[in-house]
C-alpha cells in the first residue's frame, strides 16, 4: 500500500524557531545586547582596564573621559574612593548574571515540581499548595524578600534564596495550568491505556509538553531577579561592599548624586539596559514558542 507523501522541505525546528524569533526586531536587539553582556561577564579580567577594587587615592570622583578633567584610561570616571566605574560595572555584570542564573534555576526546579504535583493530583493537595502560593503572592515581592533576608541575614546567597522563593509561585501556577491542560489530552490517556504509571506520565509524558511557556517565564524571571537583587543591594540587604554588584554600587553612590552624577547614572543604566534586553528577548521567545501566536 502506498502512502501519502509528506510535505516536502519541512524546515528544522531550529530554523523555524529562528524565523519567528527574528521577525521581532526588538528581540534580536535584546539578544545581541544580552550576548554582549554575557561576553563581558565571562571575560571580565581581560576586558576590564582596571581591577574592581583597585583604589587610586589621587583620583577620587574623576569625571568621565569626554568631560573636562576626565582621563582616557578611566572611561566612565571613578567613584568616591577612586575605583574605575567601568571596570566595576564589567565585574558587576558577573554578579548580575550569576544571580539571575541561580535564582531562575532554583525557582524553576522547585516551582515546576510543586506545580506538577498540584496540577496532576488536583483535589486537596492542589488546594493546599495553591493557597500557600496565593499567600506568597499576596505580599509585595520585595517586602517579602526583605523580610526573608532580614531573618536569614544579609548577603548575596541569602538574597538569592529569598528572591527565588518570591519568584517561584509564578512557576507553580504556570506549570499547574499547563499540566491541567495537557493531562486531558488524548495522548496522555493513550499512555495510561498502555499502562504508564504516575511517575512516567508526570515527567516523561506531560512535563516536556509544558516547557514552552516556562522558558518564556524563565527569561522574564531572570530579569526580575537581577532587578530584585539590585534593589536588595541598594537597601543594603544584598551583596555587601566592596562587592561590585550594581545595586550595591548605586547605594554607595547615593550621597554623590548632586556632585558626581556619573557615579549613580552608569550602574543605573547598566541595570536598565540589561533588564530591558532580557525582557525584549523574552517577548521574542514567546512569539517563537507559543503556538497560539504563530501566524502561518
Amino acid at each position: 500500500m502506498s502512502t501519502v507523501t509528506t510535505q516536502t522541505g519541512h524546515p528544522s525546528a531550529l530554523a523555524e524557531f529562528w524565523y519567528y524569533f527574528s521577525r521581532n526586531k526588538g528581540a534580536v536587539i535584546g539578544l545581541a545586547v544580552f550576548l554582549l553582556v554575557l561576553f563581558v561577564a565571562v571575560f571580565a579580567p581581560l576586558v576590564a582596564p582596571h581591577g574592581p577594587t583597585e583604589q587610586l587615592r589621587d583620583k577620587l570622583l574623576l569625571p568621565p573621559a569626554w568631560m573636562e578633567g576626565g582621563e582616557a584610561s578611566y572611561l566612565l570616571g571613578t567613584d568616591a574612593v577612586g575605583r574605575d566605574i567601568l571596570s566595576r560595572l564589567i565585574y558587576g555584570s558577573r554578579f548580575s548574571l550569576f544571580i539571575g542564573l541561580v535564582v531562575v534555576t532554583l525557582s524553576v526546579i522547585s516551582g515546576v515540581l510543586i506545580g506538577l504535583v498540584a496540577g496532576y493530583f488536583r483535589g486537596r493537595v492542589d488546594t493546599f499548595i495553591m493557597r500557600i502560593m496565593d499567600i506568597i503572592l499576596a505580599f509585595p515581592s520585595l517586602l517579602l524578600a526583605l523580610v526573608l533576608v532580614a531573618v536569614l541575614g544579609p548577603g548575596l546567597l541569602n538574597a538569592m534564596i529569598a528572591i527565588s522563593l518570591v519568584n517561584q509561585p509564578h512557576f507553580v501556577r504556570l506549570t499547574r495550568a499547563a499540566v491541567m491542560a495537557e493531562k486531558s489530552k488524548d495522548y496522555v490517556v493513550g499512555s495510561r491505556v498502555a499502562g504508564a504509571g504516575t511517575f512516567r506520565l508526570m515527567f516523561l509524558t506531560i512535563l516536556p509538553n509544558c516547557l514552552a511557556p516556562l522558558i518564556v517565564q524563565a527569561t522574564l524571571a531572570f530579569s526580575a531577579a537581577i532587578l530584585d537583587a539590585a534593589a536588595l543591594g541598594f537597601l543594603g540587604m544584598g551583596a555587601q561592599p566592596p562587592t561590585p554588584e550594581w545595586g550595591t554600587m548605586l547605594a554607595e553612590a547615593r550621597e554623590f548624586i548632586q556632585r558626581a552624577w556619573w557615579v549613580v547614572t552608569f550602574p543605573g543604566l547598566a541595570i536598565l539596559v540589561t533588564v530591558l534586553a532580557i525582557n525584549l528577548m523574552g517577548d521574542g521567545l514567546r512569539d517563537a514558542l507559543d503556538p497560539k501566536l504563530k501566524r502561518s
Binding site: G9, H10, P11, A15, E16, Y19, Y20, S296
Partner: peptide
C-alpha cells in the same frame, strides 16, 4: 472571480 491567486509567507518560503 477570475484567476484568483493567494500566497502565504511561511517559514519555508
Amino acid at each position: 472571480i477570475e484567476n484568483l491567486v493567494v500566497e502565504f509567507q511561511t517559514a519555508s518560503g
